[in-house]
């Protein structure tokens, strides 16, 4: 049994220790807000917060997440910064197909938790997730907007 702390709740999970956290979330726990895009840490659709760091869960063995605080998109609005980010995403109408956006919101939340007033360079360095719909300009605007929201 592997014990994980996900969105503040302790979960016992019976899987191989090297199973990617992504598939534990999606299959074992049925939390499908975290998305699978590439499986090789290229796209960021699978991002979750691991002790506040944006982490690509498709390449994170579940055993390495033991003891960490895992926050997924399902609980993002329980974080004050996450709530602001979601508001900026909705207000700025960022998503198109939406498939990448769980990961984008996670990445933006991690950035603004660590760097409340990011420069454009900070945004570029942190927001590396792919979006095939090309919502990049709206994403950058929404990050700036969330940063400026009191």
């Amino acid at each position: 049994m592997i014990e994980l702390t996900i969105n503040g709740t302790t979960r016992q999970i019976d899987v191989e220790g090297d199973t990617p956290l992504l598939w534990v979330l999606r299959d074992t726990l049925g939390m499908t807000g975290t998305k699978y895009g590439c499986g090789i840490a290229q796209c960021g659709a699978c991002s979750v917060l691991l002790d506040g760091q944006a982490t690509r869960s498709c390449v994170t063995p579940v055993e390495s997440a033991v003891g960490a605080q895992i926050t997924t998109i399902e609980a993002i609005e329980t974080l004050p910064v996450g709530k602001k980010v979601v508001a900026a995403w909705v207000g700025g109408e960022v998503p198109q197909c939406g498939y990448c956006q769980s990961g984008q919101v996670i990445a933006a939340t991690a950035l603004l938790q660590q760097t409340p007033k990011p420069t454009d360079e900070d945004i570029a360095a942190a927001m590396t997730n792919l979006c095939r719909c090309g919502t990049y300009n709206n994403i950058a605007d929404a990050v700036r907007h969330a940063a400026s929201a009191a």
Binding site: T32, G33, Y36, T72, V86, V90, P95, G98, Y99, S102
Partner: peptide, 27 residues
Amino acid sequence: FARLDMRDKSTGRAAYSIDTRVDGMLQ
């Protein structure tokens, strides 16, 4: 007019084919 699906798509609630599941399902 504001698009109707912005909240669901910003909070992981939008459900795609890949997210579907039914009772007794194998993968």
